[in-house]
Design a protein around this nucleic acid. Structure first.
Lengths: 342, 342
DNA sequence: GTGAAAGCGCTAACAA
DNA sequence: TTGTTAGCGCTTTCAC
């Protein structure tokens, strides 16, 4: 292994001068600088980041805590993070927590030991327990695709309640008035309760509040959950003409159930998804869905963490990026509209 | 920041003793050990992995070079890698190369500087150029979901040629004899040419070799490629009853085209996919597909790299894991079989 | 503008 | 069993 010492020897200068050509080249006289640069090339010298980090207290490495990389939603967020990190000269250490507290604590410990500059906690509710943990480890944290209301932690996500509201209003505007929902777990304060209550707010424009819950089923965002929830919903409300589903994956499960019992989407029942993951445009029918800017969420989270590390002023503690409505083929416009002036 | 010195002081022993309780506890007398452990807990001391790595020449960190995390196939491989790494006490640094040589070189440089123990190069052909690069950087490498024939580099993948052959034979066995293929690029020696030639070999059992190519189109594994390739194939061979498609994503594109022109899958045309990514069981019809053990590929690649780092004997340089045929709903059995005794 | 030397936090001889 | 000391490879004063 070649070290700074070898470079110094070969180029006939001191270690400090070699260090200078790497960190402040303009402070070294041109002739020496060139000699050093030549030696670096010849010896294929690469400075040891461990030694450097030991002094600088910076590793240019970020830890990313995610539930599971193989989740299509998460993997797009990560992609945004990695691009942002790359553009800033940092790297990402990937940690799949599997929602397992023990595994998470273990990662936190290792990341601390490896001296990562900061951590991004992604896509899972941030509980009081976690907050205590992070306090203990005392590392800069940014939340991506999640947030904390009780604690002052920087975060980046969409406005899920508004998204739920917009979803409901979209279906209403399309002429539906027998509208169901397959929500995430109501105990999930990030993507569950928020979208649920936004949807209910929209529904309250056409329905008495008390009756809305009869049109809502729940599931944990997975395909199978969507299938089962749709089954329950349909048995309860066979007149339903449109369903808002809180994730694309569940939406596919719901469509699968409808398809199985011979109900066509969107001709007989419309389905509105959530996320706009890649699958949404590959299935039949192509999914109309609430689009999250996953890449941007990841990217912004990293930029925010970087700003935090450089103790720059944060423009806002909790950032909310815009969602969109991506219109494709799974929602049908009903001709007989309830409010035709909309 | 608390260091080993602080722990030594508080527990009234020397730094070496503290070091020992962390690395060889049994070599320290119980009473002192307990004192040290208590101090560690009280001070919330975490050893600095940079300092340790500087000495041990090990960082317990691996670099992973992948084209793109947000690719569903890749993200499953990564998941296997990460679990394996975690079980071995290592971490993964994620590097999206985007098939961009410059970006890859940059990553290699940084990974070298950060003293990662080794690198896993994933899912892209390993060219002579890359080999030269890796030689220059002189870091242990394992290939995952790809391989090198010319160079002696450990690798883990499936036997793509056999998989292509099995795919063809499967369709023949299902009674088809007007069988098309949508292949990956023939210049891709990993997943393109291999599956293509395996398929041709199978077809040669029912067709003269010269005519087979008239039934094959090409695409770069993406949805849109599948759509376009299916269009070309269908125009050329409207009598086709089954198509083997070299990726699930392309298969979905192919199905989309067929659906659009009113041809139902599998009633009129059967489609056999490749990979068995998560989407395969979420679409309609659910995809019958050649299943790759993505998780296992990732896992095994990491274990292999670890063995390499510990200079253990590798049981085999190039590992080939088994593929499977996952039967779902997109392939129909034709009653009028060509070889009814099969 | 350049070099010598101290030190980042840790481990590993070597003594004791 | 334990402590002292010399580094690991680098940056950073501080003189010159």
């Amino acid at each position: 292994m070649t070290t700074i010492k070898d470079v110094a020897k070969l180029s006939g200068v001191s270690m400090s001068t070699v260090s200078r050509v790497m960190n402040a080249p303009e402070s070294v006289r041109a002739d020496k600088r060139e000699k050093v640069e030549k030696a670096i090339r010849e010896l294929r010298y690469y400075p040891n980041a461990l030694a450097r980090g030991l002094i600088s207290k910076r590793t240019e490495t970020l830890g990313v805590l995610i539930p599971d990389v193989s989740n299509p939603y998460v993997s797009e967020v990560i992609r945004g993070m990695e691009d942002a990190a790359h553009s800033l000269g940092s790297n990402l250490i990937l940690c799949n927590t599997d929602r397992n507290q023990e595994r998470m604590i273990n990662y936190l410990k290792v990341l601390k030991e490896k001296q990562v500059d900061g951590i991004i906690y992604t896509s899972e509710p941030f509980t009081a327990d976690f907050h205590k943990l992070f306090e203990e480890f005392n590392m800069p944290v940014v939340l991506a695709s999640t947030q904390s209301i009780e604690y002052e932690i920087p975060s980046v996500k969409i406005n899920d309640e508004k998204a739920g509201y917009d979803a409901g209003m979209y279906l209403i505007r399309k002429g539906h008035y027998k509208i169901g929902m397959i929500s995430g777990p109501i105990e999930d304060p990030i993507a569950g309760y928020t979208r649920y209550s936004g949807f209910k707010k929209a529904m309250s424009e056409i329905l008495p509040m008390e009756t809305i819950d009869a049109w809502i089923e729940f599931g944990s965002y997975r395909y199978e959950d969507g299938y089962e929830a749709m089954k329950r919903l349909y048995k309860k409300q066979p007149e339903v003409t449109a369903v808002f589903v809180a994730s694309d994956e569940m939406a596919l499960g719901a469509i699968s159930y409808l398809h199985q019992i011979g109900i066509s989407v969107p001709e007989e029942v419309s389905v509105l998804g959530f996320d706009n993951t890649k699958i949404a445009k590959m299935c039949i029918p192509k999914l109309t869905t609430i689009g999250q800017p996953m890449y941007d969420i990841g990217q912004k989270a990293v930029f925010k963490l970087e700003a935090l590390l450089n103790s720059e002023e944060l423009d806002e503690l909790r950032s909310y990026l815009d969602h969109t409505i991506v219109e494709r083929d799974s929602v049908k416009e009903l001709s007989r509209k309830l409010y035709s002036n909309w």
